[in-house]
Amino acid sequence: MSLFAVNKPLPPRTRSLVTVLSFVLPLVIWSLVSYVPFIWHPQTLISEPGSVSYFKADMLIDNAIFETELAKARDAGTALPQGSPANPGYLPAPHEVVTALYTAFTTEPTRSSEKWLHESLWSSIEVIFWGFVLSSIIGIPLGIMAGTFDFFSRLFEPFIEFFRYLPAPAFGALAVAILGIYQAPKIAIIFIGTFFQQVLVVANTTRKLDPALLEAGQTLGASNRSLIFRIVIPGILPDLYRDTRILLGWAWTYLIVAELIGTSSGITWFITQQARYKNFDNVFAAIIIIGILGLTIDLLLAWLGRRLFPWQRVNH
């Protein structure tokens, strides 16, 4: 069978193979760029400074400068500098990042007031959690009301539609002024970034519920209250769950901006700190940790979703 049949699932084996490929492919590209000397490698890692006064061992120098100095030394007949092709410091090789992934957790912070990586991570997770939970507690009921009653739709949605175009980080200064410099303003930014989208998305999901189900409920004698609690909510639950998963992803994207507000904290603090020390392998490690964490949570929620809504499975 063709690999490119329109709207047809691949055979199971090919399918899992391609899924693995989706991760292997970028890894291969990264490895090629890192380990094959003639691909990119725009700089030279000095191993022997030779006669060049400003060269030092383990220094990274642009290839062009190295070539000029090498030519000069050769012309002058002095000791030749030696070096090997290298990538810039901001692109560490895969094995360096893997080592960093491990050492980042085991290395003591440089100052006693600073946090371990796992403490930073935990602080980030707390910010996301509270921002998202607060947003959901208010946003989901509002969305359901707006999706069910035209009255609430008219009352909430025009303003929210306006507000959601205001970028959440723009409220950073305001949040700090009101809520101080620690966790609260960060949670507020996650809240602002999530809440307005959430109301609109949930309202839309609610509106997509088959109106015939509501009519059937009415002809069975359901009151407005019953229509909401016994038809609307159970009816949209699987879609609501999926929306929540997607919105949680959005909340993560606001994390980095949120954590820069007030005193920088969490994984963002770790990343900016490590970038300042030019430990780019640690920066990569931290970014990858965020990715792994996000993906793991999403897969976990997807797995849970399949168990929560058994009526969506067909088994004749």
Binding site: L213, E215, T219, L220, R230, I231, G235
Partner: peptide, 26 residues
């Protein structure tokens, strides 16, 4: 609408999250 006028629709309109028994109990 009211329960003294039962309605059956072409599109079945059973509640997909309820079992057969729970649908009838609604």
């Amino acid at each position: 609408p009211g329960p003294e006028r039962g309605m059956v629709f072409q599109g079945y309109t059973l509640f997909p999250w309820l079992t057969v028994k729970e649908n009838i109990m609604f």
